[in-house]
């Protein structure tokens, strides 16, 4: 029983940590802000929740599990709100959601030169 629990929790921790790497890779590789948001949301959902589940399975007391669960609840409500705030601010700030080539910060660079 304990061994199965260890294996399950180890698998959750490993997959969660790998998802964090994939998410960071997405934030680096994807071409513009709006697509990078999707890469970032992997870290907020898959990565964070699998790591938390992995830790809950190893928690040695009830209170530790509850605290991890509370971290999960806080992330569950704040992560999409923060993503939406960034996306909406970028939309108002003049980035185009349909044209990745237009979002490379050139206008800003030209403003700096002028």
């Amino acid at each position: 029983m304990s061994l199965a629990l260890d294996i399950l929790s180890g698998a959750c921790l490993f997959v969660g940590a790998v998802l964090m790497i994939v998410s960071a890779l997405g934030v680096i590789r994807l071409p513009d802000l709006f697509t990078r948001l999707h890469g970032a949301s992997i870290a907020d959902t898959g990565g964070a929740f699998l790591l938390l589940i992995g830790m809950i399975l190893q928690a040695d007391s009830f209170l530790v599990g509850i605290k991890l669960g509370l971290i999960g609840i806080v992330l569950f409500f704040t992560a999409p709100t923060a993503s939406h705030a960034v996306a909406h601010a970028a939309l108002i700030g003049g980035l185009s959601p349909d044209d990745p080539g237009a979002n490379q910060g050139r206008e800003e660079a030209e403003e700096d030169r002028a």
Partner: peptide, 15 residues
Amino acid sequence: ANSITLTPGTVALSV
């Protein structure tokens, strides 16, 4: 809107 944003692959831009 939060469910849309929470699902990777879709983000709510304005509501």
